[in-house]
Simulated assay, not measured.
Amino acid sequence: MHIVNLHDRPALLPALAAAHVQAFGELLPDWTLPQAEQELRAQQRHAIPCTWLAEDDAGWLGSVSLLHDDHEQIRGWSPWLASLYVQPRGRGKGVGAQLVRHCVAQAAALGVSILYLYCEAPMVDWYLNLGWRVHTRLQLGPLAITVMAMETRQG
């Protein structure tokens, strides 16, 4: 498995947009496939916002994004590790953890000192095991979420 920038795989953009709408549409019920595609087309290579894909010889396995804002109701913190998605065939194989580590490293390289993400309760322990800490808990639409933070650079 290796990780590439979305710019290196533009043909995958429609499939990735469809996967994101399916996976994250509950939070954004008015979000459409064309909007998701437009957002992914706006990704940059060496600046925020950017998206990376994990892939193997059979194709793409998952994705993660680094965004300035991840949801209109929580703009008090920035930037965000967002849209972590692993296809079913890649789950349980460390793909998500590698994508998270890659995003954190890229954020640090871009000068980000603190990175945020939000998740629902079942994923909190998973992120804690990757070195994240609980920042706050709040209600985001219909979901009770935990905002987590990580310092990307040491001292």
Rank of each mutant, 00 (worst) to 15 (best):
S65W: 00
V134Q: 13
Q87M: 09
H20N: 15
V147D: 02
Q38E: 15
A82Q: 00
A15M: 04
V21H: 05
L110Q: 06
H71I: 05
G155W: 07
V86F: 08
G25C: 03
L110E: 06
D70A: 10
G96T: 03
N5S: 13
S113R: 14
V86N: 11
P14I: 00
L12E: 10
G131E: 09
A105N: 04
A23H: 14
Q43K: 02
S63L: 10
H68I: 13
L138S: 13
P29A: 04
Y127C: 09
A19W: 05
L115G: 06
V95I: 14
L130S: 04
L84Y: 01
H46V: 05
G96Y: 03
L130Q: 15
A17E: 05
T146F: 07
D30T: 12
A149N: 13
G76Q: 02
L84V: 15
K93N: 12
P10M: 07
W31S: 14
W132Q: 02
A58L: 05
V4P: 01
L33D: 10
L84P: 04
L130D: 04
Q73I: 01
E26Y: 01
G111C: 08
V134M: 06
D57S: 12
G25D: 08
L53E: 00
A47L: 05
A121F: 03
V95C: 11
M150D: 01
G94S: 09
